[in-house]
Amino acid sequence: MSPTDLFQPLLMKIEQVIEETPDVRTLRLAFADERQGREFTFRTGQFGEYSVFGEGECTFCIASPPTRNGFIECTFRKAGRVTTALAGLEPGETIGFRGPYGNIFPIQDWERKNLLFIAGGIALPPMRSVIWNVLDLRDRYGDITIVYGARTVADLVYKRELAEWAARPDIKLVTTVDPGGETPDWKGEIGFVPAVLDKAAPASRDTIAVVCGPPVMIKFTFPVLARLGLAPKSIFTTLENRMKCGVGKCGRCNTGKYFVCKDGPVFTLAQLQGMPQEY
């Protein structure tokens, strides 16, 4: 039976724990109740509240695509009380999940367009869901370019998937690390994401860009995209305002008149330009 209360989580079993970097983990989660699992649907871009009972809840996006059923995945960095507890859990253990919450990446509107994904650091998870989603529907989209940067080689997450994407002829993948963050056998680019993006100069006609990453990266990436000729309404990002309830009540994510948990987390640059700088 599904919980009737908004705040009561569904129970999820940890099926698999993948150590992405020393402090980043991906969990594959299956619904403890199979029927709940069959009934559960979400769309790419949405997030959830994950709980470790006795420690509390934290907000992560759903990092797996809706095209793959029966489980969801999240990728998180060990940062504080709940994420530390979560990082200590092993396959077979039970956690809670509320969701899906928030709006979506409107991928239906993007069909036949070129897609450019730009991510920095631990911000690849929200993007991983949408990337796999469009890759699972590959023939509906034009060129797909992924530019992903991290501070050091060790900080790159989803190494197996990066290898898989690099091997695919129908995607252009550019990986980069900050100067000094490379290893002797590093074959990718060296430099900050905006500069590398300038060099990669992907298709700019009929292009949709999705940018996720630390605020500085986003700030310096927008002008590059403008130079490439992208309109603000074709540039998407996600906001990460502090959240508690996820359902528009606790007040924490309120940004101007918007609630990031309900009106977001996905926003276009055009929308951000019309919003107060409070994120």
């Binding site: 705040f7 709980s51 009972f53 006795g54 420690e55 509390g56 809840e57 305002n241 502090r242 508690k244 309830c245 009540k249 606790c250 007040g251 924490r252 309120n254």
Partner: peptide, 27 residues
């Protein structure tokens, strides 16, 4: 405005309690 907190260890309660957007760490 409210906060959500767990108490009582692994067999405990999830609590809702008052919070304020006036606190510096709220956001």
């Amino acid at each position: 405005c409210f906060d959500i907190q767990d108490e009582g260890g692994i067999s405990g309660q999830r609590l809702r309690c008052w919070d304020s957007c006036g606190f510096g760490l709220f956001t």
